[in-house]
Simulated assay, not measured.
Amino acid sequence: MTLAALPGPPGTRILGLGHYRPGNVVTNHDLIARGVDTDDEWIKSRVGIAERRWADPDESVVDMAEQAASKALAASGVSTDDIDLVLVATCTMVTQIPAAAPELASRLGIHAPGAYDVNSGCSGFVYALNAASAAVLTGQARNVLVVAAERFSGWLDMTDRSTCIILGDGAGAAVVGPSDTAGLGPVVWGSDGAQFDTVAIDAESRLFRQEGQAVYRWATGEMAPIGIEACKRAGLEPSDIVAFVPHQANLRIIDALARRINLPNAIIARDIVTSGNTSAATIPLALSRMVEAGEIPSGAPVLLLGFGSGLAYAAQVVLAP
């Protein structure tokens, strides 16, 4: 017995992007005024952040996801009637059940799509992007809405200056659809599960914690070869990359990776300076803002590199919409 084949298109690509940042700007000086034992120069020298955005008390992960998704749909020109799957990358839902994706789909008027969440922390968007691409390539979806949204302001320990200064809230989204040629390169992904608990929500306090130095050493020591391999699998050299959009974890990590991958012609995303670390949302948020500002031309190859909790990672080259 054989099963029916699943016909799909030759390739997939990002058809449109969108992003959302809450209106509540929290500067380093605002944190000091709230009693955090730190100073502006220390924060900038350690992580490169000048300000971050925090959601209003009644603003949820799904609220932010809806804003970013609406913009991505508008930019893509794809009707909600033509979306067959909705994926939400997040690790900051208040409860584990229900997932964000079905609610988001309902709010957007997408009728009866497949819908599920992806929880891989800071690499979650790239993981979800590849799940979306696979669904289109195998003919199981015509178009897929991929959203990454995080609300870390509800999980912060304000007495821990090593974490509360870093994290922010926001969302980014992409519509993935069919293409006559490949617009999403092969993914390079993996994990170092021996260090799974270096980034976590503490079981007792229910607040975010991380072993910052361990994550820094891992990221700067292990992630550059992953980015280089993603370029290789896409049939490109690092010198062909027009933009590098890594997870916005720490400005020193971003700059170290850019040097070690050796990207002489690439503009480097440094969205962390004004958005903070928004985990899964950092990559699509930064990419969308750069495309909107005209910093990345349509069709340009962009290297995405997500890494963080798990410790999981994923990298790939995509063509800008």
Score class of each variant (00 low, 15 high):
L303Q: 07
V26L: 10
T159M: 09
A281G: 13
S79V: 00
Y216R: 01
P9N: 07
A33I: 09
G193I: 13
A280K: 03
Y116L: 15
E103A: 15
A281Q: 08
G124L: 04
E211V: 06
W155S: 11
V302Y: 08
A230R: 01
S133L: 04
G183N: 06
T138W: 04
G11S: 06
S275W: 09
V302K: 03
L207C: 05
G48A: 10
A101R: 03
V144I: 01
L319Y: 10
A269Q: 08
K71Y: 03
A219P: 09
D157C: 12
F125I: 07
A249S: 15
D117L: 06
W42R: 05
A33H: 08
V94K: 15
T274I: 12
G276Y: 11
I49D: 10
P98F: 10
F307A: 08
L31Y: 00
S179M: 06
A72F: 05
W155M: 14
S239C: 13
S205Y: 06
V146Q: 02
G109F: 05
E211Q: 14
T12E: 07
V302S: 12
D84A: 03
L319V: 06
F196C: 15
A256C: 15
A141W: 00
V273L: 08
A182P: 12
T92K: 04
V176L: 11
A214G: 11
E41Y: 02
